[in-house]
Computed example of a mutant assay.
Amino acid sequence: MGSQKDVLSDTTEYLSCQRKRARWHKMMKRLIMLIVLAAVGVFTFFHAKEWYTVRKSVSGVEIEFKTEWENAAEQVNLTGDWSEDVLALAQSQLGYSESNDADWSATFVSFCLSYANVEGFPVETDCNQWVQKLRENEYGAYREADEYTPEPGDLVFFDMDDSTEQKIVDHVGIVVDVMSDTGAASVKIKTIEGNSNDCVQYVIYDQTDARIIGYGKLPEETE
């Protein structure tokens, strides 16, 4: 009988240890999962608001972090004239290029609008969706290319592919100047764009360039 009791005791103790070990493993798995989720949450929190991360194009490798390009934007003295302020912010980023291969022209323009404190105007990261929003009655800010003469500070939307009959907006910039010399064959539009040859730079187009689809008119400043 003693031997049987010993066996039962040992078995009970063994099963108890196994249960404790199983519970411990289960708790560790949950803990690891929570740590991973927390890490993902922290990463998302710190990076979700970053419109874009840029690097100096002259070096090709030197990364400019969020604080650096924010500092460049914060050096701009805002006047309260949204068109002027958007252009000034865009020009503060000239010569910089994105650190990834994604299309970032819309995020660059949205960055400028955001830091210029433009109100009553949507921001977007998708050019085609942006145009659809601007067409809505809520904004009424979209202008067809063949029906409008742009002004500095306007957004200009492009179909850079221009290979199909159906126009798909896939790029956006900011109008810097509209140049119409008397002897010129056509009116020229000077823009500043992100994701143009992988950097922020000036570009000049004929106003009649078939790739230009339309414009986004900024709202008037509030008093």
Rank of each mutant, 00 (worst) to 15 (best):
W104L: 05
A102L: 15
L89R: 00
E62M: 09
D85P: 00
Y96K: 14
E62Q: 13
L94Q: 06
S110C: 05
G95W: 14
D103K: 09
E50P: 01
T79W: 02
S110D: 00
D103Q: 12
N100C: 10
N77G: 08
A90W: 03
S59K: 05
S99F: 06
S105Q: 04
D101T: 06
W104E: 03
L89Y: 07
S110Q: 02
D103S: 15
D101F: 01
E84I: 01
V58S: 13
L113I: 01
Y52A: 02
L87T: 01
E74F: 07
E98P: 02
K66E: 12
T107Q: 05
N71C: 11
D85H: 00
V109I: 09
G60C: 00
S97D: 06
K56L: 15
D103Y: 07
N71R: 15
D85R: 00
E50H: 08
W51T: 04
W69L: 14
F65M: 09
E50S: 10
A90F: 01
V54L: 14
S83Q: 13
E68Q: 14
W51M: 03
W104C: 00
L78A: 01
D101N: 10
S92F: 09
A72C: 06
L87S: 05
L78Y: 00
Y52V: 04
A72M: 08
N71W: 14
Q93M: 15
E64P: 03
L78R: 06
E68C: 04
E74I: 07
V86R: 03
V86I: 12
E64K: 02
A88V: 05
T79L: 05
E70R: 07
V76A: 06
S99N: 15
L113S: 06
